[in-house]
């Protein structure tokens, strides 16, 4: 059994995502998985989990191998409990990601993609503190549209990208880039390396801007 590359998608499903954005996110994940299944590296190493957050955070898909993955339908309502999402993510990393010891060949450090279109409405710093205690690989935070608070995201990770608008073609472009990034990640781990900086990911499309 080769090492797994865990990938966590942490998605905002608060009320403001209702309509076009949430539909685009659902399709985006489907397209992402479908593309990754064509990639021999990702097909064998990438495992995917979906965590959504609105008034609460929920893991709607536990860490699942790509071949068995099915995207449930998602809907948008409620608040933006980003802190709760980070806390849940930390817990899931503890319970789902295997550490390497002499006895056990553990997983690669998880890749995390967080997408939100607003500012957190809960005590996000508490959640962040929990999350930061975990070892992760690349963490990318995406501000979907102008309503998202990039200052908050910057405190979660250095790698923050922003979408000009949260319309369906932009969200689609974002997920395409996530898919390419996971492909790169699984290819890198195959040769014994891990992705550490945004510079090692494929260049994002024009709709996805790197926030510096």
């Amino acid at each position: 059994m080769a090492r797994r590359l865990p990938v966590y998608l942490v998605l905002d499903t608060s009320g403001s995502m209702m309509g076009e954005p949430i539909a685009a996110v659902e399709t985006g994940v489907q397209t992402l998985v479908s593309a990754l299944r064509q990639d021999p590296y990702a097909l064998e190493t990438a495992y995917l989990s979906i965590i959504t957050f609105d008034s609460n955070a929920k893991q709607i898909v536990p860490l699942t191998e790509l071949t068995a993955f099915q995207m449930p339908s998602i809907s948008a309502n409620g608040l933006t409990s980003l802190g709760d999402a980070l806390k849940l993510l930390a817990n899931k990393i503890d319970s789902e990601v295997a550490k390497t010891t002499a006895e056990v060949k553990g997983d690669w450090k998880p890749l995390v993609f967080i997408m939100t279109d607003g500012g957190p409405t809960d005590d996000w710093k508490k959640g962040l503190a929990e999350f930061q205690k975990r070892k992760t690989g690349m963490v990318v935070a995406c501000a979907a549209g102008q309503g998202a608070d990039t200052n908050v995201l910057k405190q979660i990770t250095e790698c923050v990208v922003q979408l000009d608008t949260a319309d369906s073609s932009t969200i689609k472009a974002f997920f395409k880039w996530v898919s390419a990034s996971v492909s790169t990640g699984s290819q890198k781990v195959d040769s014994g390396n891990e992705v550490v900086g945004i510079g090692e990911l494929p260049p994002p499309p024009p709709e996805v801007n790197i926030v510096v």
Binding site: K105, G192, N193, E194
Partner: peptide, 9 residues
């Protein structure tokens, strides 16, 4: 020379 992290030989 495996080490805690894979690939860091």
């Amino acid at each position: 020379d495996g080490g805690e992290f894979a690939g860091q030989t």
